[in-house]
């Protein structure tokens, strides 16, 4: 992923510490380097130009990201209510999170449940679909388009579509289950089935990840397969020893990003619960029996309904902490199973 064009000596300033995933920051020095190539002397002007070019990003980072970020860190130690108070309360918010707020645990559990099932399933689903779409049969482009289509559609329209599909007595899903004599569940209306419903919905739009895998699959050198054929490898062996290892960098990327996004699930629950105005208790904030009260939804309620911004910020930082640990964990263990072509990492 690193820009190999850049000669180390030519870099106008110390290389930024970029991770594999940080596409934007890796691309920026390239622009600066290009300007440098045109005029080889006068480093000062070039530095100036370089900074000028990246200034929108730096300003954005400092004022729109870093500023609020640090502010929220501070706020998490206060009883900030957005409008009138901000007293330092030490670790009270964090203490309350772990010891007094039952809904915190409910929301954490709901979110973990979603992450644990949706991340592996969508990743496996995307790989599987990519493999199928990598065959050489006529009309493949049409299939690829069809499978990618759900990734293009997004937002509220999709949620409404799924609310109809999952309708217990007239929805398409239960109608089909009925053909096989299966009495389908009430999906979004049954606390036991609400989360599986959302996971199912997520599976439908694996097209985005599929595209990445497909691109990678197309790039695998046929020579590898030929060599394997000569050695008498069967299809399974080829898959496990060639295809899968070649896919691992993308799987790695996919797992990290989809873990992060899954932890942040909010919209789906927010829209699909509020879409209907009926429930046994009248209030619909967290879905039937709070089964869709996700972490971010609980955080949002605290911030903007109860005006408990201090507590919400503490929750946000704890989520950051969880995701951070998981990502570091992934990165640490990645060299055990992620295979890079260049061979610089094993």
């Amino acid at each position: 992923m690193n820009e190999t064009v850049i000669n180390e000596k030519e870099k106008p300033y110390p290389p930024e510490k970029t991770t594999e995933l940080d596409v934007t920051s890796a691309a920026l020095p390239k622009a600066a380097v290009l300007s440098k190539r045109k005029r080889n002397k006068g480093g000062k002007t070039e530095n100036l130009m370089g900074y000028l070019f990246i200034s929108p990003w730096i300003v954005g980072l400092l004022f729109l990201m870093a500023g609020p970020l640090l502010f929220s860190l501070y706020v998490s130690f206060t009883d900030y209510n957005i409008t009138s108070q901000m007293n330092f309360v030490g670790l009270d918010n964090y203490k309350r999170m772990f010891t007094e707020d039952n809904l915190f645990w409910t929301s954490l559990w709901n979110t973990l449940y979603f992450v644990i099932f949706s991340v592996p399933l969508t990743t496996a689903g995307a790989v599987f679909v990519a493999l199928l779409l990598n065959q050489k049969i006529p009309g493949m482009k049409i299939f690829r388009t069809i499978y990618y289509l759900p990734a293009v559609l997004s937002g509220v329209a999709v949620y409404f579509l799924w609310m109809h599909l999952l309708s217990p007595s007239t929805g398409l899903v239960n109608t089909i289950l009925d053909w096989f004599g299966i009495n389908g569940p009430a999906w979004l209306f049954d606390p036991e089935w609400t989360k599986p419903s959302l996971i199912l919905m997520k599976l439908w739009s694996v097209g985005g990840g599929m595209l990445l895998y497909l691109a990678r699959l197309q790039g695998v050198s046929p020579a590898l397969y030929e060599a394997a054929d000569l050695d008498g490898a069967n299809a399974f062996q080829k898959f496990f020893h060639i295809t899968l290892p070649m896919l691992t960098p993308i799987i790695f990327f996919d797992i990290i990003t989809s873990t992060i996004f899954s932890f942040q699930i909010f919209q789906e629950a927010y829209v699909m619960i509020q879409g209907g105005d009926l429930s046994s208790s009248g209030g619909l904030e967290g879905g039937p029996a709070n089964s869709l009260l996700f972490y971010n939804l609980h955080m949002w309620n605290n911030a903007f309904k109860i005006f408990n911004m201090g507590y919400a910020s503490a929750m946000a930082w704890f989520l950051f902490f969880i995701i951070m640990i998981l990502t570091v964990f992934h990165l640490k263990f990645s060299n055990k199973w992620v295979h890079y072509d260049g061979g610089d990492k094993k």
């Binding site: 046994s280 208790s281 408990n308």
Partner: peptide, 19 residues
């Protein structure tokens, strides 16, 4: 207790569901 509804509603929900 500005948050009481989000605490009470799911519990009542569970009672209505017979749990």
């Amino acid at each position: 207790y500005p948050d009481y509804k989000s605490i009470v509603d799911p519990i009542i929900d569970n009672a209505v569901q017979g749990k």
